[in-house]
Design a protein around this nucleic acid. Structure first.
Lengths: 166, 166
DNA sequence: AATATATGTCAATAGTGCTGACTAAAATAA
DNA sequence: TTATTTTAGTCAGCACTATTGACATATATT
């Protein structure tokens, strides 16, 4: 077994095998509950989680390209294709040819798409706000720091840039 | 719009609309990368994430019943049935009749299952350990506090009990 | 003109989830 | 004892999300 599994006594307690597994499980539980509110709303539209992800990231990054979206979601273009086509044909998302590169399809939310974005993000923002309030400023900073350090190192810069774009 | 969306100036900055959305996105990114290592291992076994979740929670709660597992995973028994049957028929999981209630099927990992559990949890533990080390004790406490507060209130007690069982 | 890039599409397959309908066994209540 | 409830399992069918591979189109770059 590794030194982590055996938890040598000189390690801080939060690095014990047990605490690490708790950290894993907490993330599972939080993500499970976190997605439950939007899932309910999406069902009413006949959409799934994949649609939510597209609406979210296009809403946050108006004018992004399909390639950029693929890089964030880490799915294949064939997977994205289905949900994106639906969202476009049902007029939640608008595609415009790129001006600099006319091969690109720049993605925007329509007003209808904006409304869906708001509807989906409201319960999640409320949930995060409630947790942030309950936990306090220091805990929030710690939460963000740990999540950041959980990311694949090679993507940390990209993600932080994406998140900090606003 | 709600008071959260408009972010009245008397709110701390971490409760601004933008910071809340960052909190949402960080969770998405962390979960995305967090599941990537096990996913790769599972592919080699012909398994998916659902198998991982079963192996994990049975490994952590030896002798748990099917009903308990369903409550944690929040899926239907029909959904669980498929993956559980596979894991049993391939001898990763052992079912034993309950002694107190012989309708129950108490779930245990076989030695083979233990091995898979260890193999799957190793990269995740390493990832969490690395993040915890980098972030430090206070940040870890904050991380755990916020995740806890993100849970559905009515399940917080259950989850914390489950996580604290060890 | 040749090559590379960005996007889209068709076909086939896999994993995960759902509902509904049913069976079986065992526990519990009347 | 008999009736009801609980726990678990199973079968059929459907939907969503994801995959790979092959190919097409338009545009940009060299």
């Amino acid at each position: 077994m590794s030194e982590i599994a055996t938890n040598a006594s000189h390690e801080p307690s939060y690095l014990s095998d047990d605490e690490l597994i708790r950290g894993i499980e907490m993330l599972f539980y939080a993500y499970r509950d976190f997605t439950s509110d939007p899932d309910e709303i999406l069902t009413r539209y006949g959409f799934g989680r994949a649609h939510h992800r597209v609406v979210h990231f296009v809403g946050r990054n108006p004018g992004m390209t399909v390639a950029e979206l693929l890089a964030i979601l880490k799915v294949t273009k064939q997977s994205l294709s289905r949900v994106l086509s639906q969202l476009v044909s049902e007029a939640f998302i608008i595609q415009e040819k790129g001006v600099r590169d006319r091969r690109q399809r720049l993605l925007y939310l329509s007003p209808k798409g904006e409304t869906l974005f708001e509807e989906l993000s409201r319960p999640q923002k409320d949930r995060v706000a409630k947790a942030y309030r309950a936990a306090g400023a220091d805990a929030v900073a710690g939460y963000r720091k740990v999540l950041e350090d959980l990311l694949n190192a090679e993507e940390r810069a990209t993600v932080l840039q994406a998140v900090d774009r606003s």
